[in-house]
Design a protein around this nucleic acid. Structure first.
Lengths: 237, 237
DNA sequence: GTGCAAAATATCGTATACAATTTAGCCGTC
DNA sequence: GACGGCTAAATTGTATACGATATTTTGCAC
């Protein structure tokens, strides 16, 4: 009897179950705003959409509930999370709390090729910034998150990386709900400034910029509501 | 059609499902060391133990997997997490990263009655410290975690609180695995020092003490393995 | 006795079925 | 017309059933 294997990579070795795929698909749909906050995600509907049984649909929804992207209410069903303004503030407070530390860790370990990778992300982000249309906006939100996620990956701490995964996804939800889209472009240059500060090894300045960046995103939120688009339309057609 | 209710308290309103109870029971068993790392938790066995079907047992195990307390391997089964030394280092690195920030937030919001509550925790912890026996040791580990958890609760950020929940639980697992029990008592006085620093509003010192405290715990780890005790014995008799 | 192959066993992955709860519609009464 | 209760439909909670995969055991040859 082997003692539970390596246990270093918890469960990310491969897509161990079909529920993972459904979870990822729904998560992408949420993060990319194809599913609006508050949309009901009935187990039957989800199962039918992906041609699986309710068992897998339920597992996927429960997993998303752990990540804070859907909220399941007892005997009532699952809904795309509808973060309250207070919840939004907590999300960004958490990011202000952890991202400077992650940045310092990442800067201490970063390699030239990783810096190059970050710069490529910046370029892709800038390209998206120039484009118009809802699709470009979605991609821009995702790209903006990828920058922070890559930093977390570079830090080498899998636990913080997973936490940032959650925070970024929920941030996307908050931005989709409350953000005024016109201003998200300024975040790009701030990303560039951070990379520059890392490159010249000015960590204090990099952290300062990071905090400013997060505060800046948070400052650009209003409380307008957006109407849901429905489940089927988000995946079909 | 209501828009998904408040969504502030995500799912903690009440025990919405029997799986939650099983999850909590198993988590307590893990944190209190009644279940040793590496112990196999077959879905059938868990279900039989709690007199529920495999469905609920599976849901509970999956939830614990998300918290990092058990690792599920495809087509092989679930095991109590067996954190590697590297994983242990990451857990404590994460705590060093977030706990000073949580401490600052908590100190900014703390009320006299909450300070009193913290002191009561310290007293209870001290009482446990004096006692002998495995049971007292378990309670001491739990109490030590409660101090950090209470701080997170005071900080008022539910997201960070949940993250600390996970970190503390996994820390208990690491301590149970690698810790040399004789030294955990010194952590108590350090807790007291931190509270004292908070009370006189010396936040820099409090953070310094917190970092020292975490580093101290981490320094007292060796790599000895401990044998599992088996599933049934942990719950029965 | 050792090593390999194949059946047997155990366990997980998924689907389906039934029970319990909530929600919506309907009707009657005030 | 509004409100309260009752029935019916829909949805979730849980259990069971069946198929797939991994592990162990058995058997045989060497």
């Amino acid at each position: 009897m082997k003692p539970a294997a390596t246990a270093l990579q918890t469960a990310e070795d491969s897509t161990d179950t079909g529920a993972q795929q459904i979870r990822d698909a729904i998560r992408d749909a949420i993060v990319e705003r194809r599913l609006s906050p508050g949309t009901k995600l009935s187990e039957s509907d989800v199962g039918n959409l992906f041609n699986v049984s309710r068992t897998l649909a339920r597992a996927a929804l429960q997993a998303l509930s752990y990540e804070g992207l859907v909220s399941v209410e007892k005997n009532r069903g699952a809904f795309v999370a509808y973060p309250s303004p207070d919840e939004a503030r907590q999300i960004f407070a958490a990011r202000r709390l952890v991202e400077p530390g992650i940045l310092r860790e990442a800067a201490a370990r970063i390699t030239p090729s990783q810096i190059q990778h970050l710069k490529q992300l910046l370029i892709a982000e800038g390209r998206l910034m120039g484009e118009r249309g809802q699709m470009a906006r979605r991609a821009e939100i995702k790209a903006s998150g990828d920058f922070h996620l890559t930093l977390a990956a570079i830090s080498g701490n899998a636990i913080m990386q997973r936490f940032m995964d959650e925070l970024v996804a929920r941030s996307s939800l908050v931005i989709a709900l409350y953000g005024q889209s016109t201003i998200s472009s300024c975040g790009h240059s701030e990303h560039g400034d951070i990379v520059a500060a890392i490159e010249r090894n000015d960590l204090d300045e990099a952290c300062r910029l990071m905090l400013h960046h997060i505060a800046h995103i948070e400052a650009d939120l209003d409380l307008r509501e957006r109407k849901s688009v429905g489940l089927k339309e988000a995946f079909e057609g």
